[in-house]
């Protein structure tokens, strides 16, 4: 574990917590893409499938974190699609998730470290995570704005994988550890946030709201 991965995981936890708090406190999921949250839930379940396959003795933080990620993302989907369904902006959350899931699954079968079920599920999860934020970014471009709290969520969510890139540089340099698939997908994922990061840093930090040219 290094400082970059530690802050990356903390940033990821913060993102999940910010979104949950926003939905729970405002009792509304306006401006939140339910599809993105579904894709994240799929990512966690397919990536941490080993938790279900053999007994999980909660002896280390990694397993606890995996359970937190899975339960929090499933609970977030429950809030969006059931509890606060009336506030779900289905009309604007219109990016076809199939256009993300099918290519990720196909690519996972073509480009992977080893052609076995668990490894292909892990690879699928990595590819899907790289593009899972697209429905959320698409929704914001359709509505033309993002609530400040949602901007904070996106900043934390984007920062998590950006910090992981620093973690991979660190591990390459000090541990000569390289996980090419995770690195390439992580770089793509972070690039997708670039224009949002620019807007966040130039606007939200100054207290303005993000309003995209409609």
């Amino acid at each position: 574990m290094n400082i970059f991965r530690l802050f990356g995981d903390l940033s990821h936890l913060a993102a999940i917590a910010i979104l949950l708090l926003k939905i729970w406190k405002t009792r509304s999921c306006a401006g939140v893409s339910g599809k993105t949250q579904l894709l994240f839930a799929v990512c966690f379940i397919t990536r941490y499938i080993d938790l279900f396959l053999h007994f999980v003795s909660l002896y280390n933080t990694e397993k606890v974190m995996k359970l937190i990620y899975i339960s929090a993302s499933v609970f977030t989907c429950y809030l969006i699609f059931f509890k606060f369904k009336a506030t779900y902006d289905g009309n604007h959350d219109s990016m076809r998730a199939e256009f993300l899931i099918v290519p990720a699954a196909g690519l996972a079968c073509l480009i992977n470290t080893k052609f076995d079920a668990i490894e292909i599920l892990w690879t699928f999860s990595i590819y899907l995570e790289a593009v899972a934020i697209l429905p959320q970014l698409f929704l914001i471009s359709k509505t033309g704005e993002a609530e400040t709290i949602t901007s904070h969520y996106l900043f934390a969510q984007g920062s998590y994988r950006a910090l992981y890139i620093l973690n991979w540089i660190y591990r390459y340099h000090y541990e000569s550890h390289v996980d090419t698939i995770a690195i390439v997908a992580g770089v793509v994922q972070t690039i997708l946030y670039c224009d949002f990061f620019y807007l966040y840093i130039t606007k939200v930090v100054k207290g303005q709201k993000i309003v995209l040219p409609a």
């Binding site: 991965r5 990821h12 995996k66």
Partner: peptide, 10 residues
């Protein structure tokens, strides 16, 4: 650590 295929990151 562990085998190559053991992904030790979240």
């Amino acid at each position: 650590g562990g085998s190559l295929l053991h992904h030790d990151e979240l």
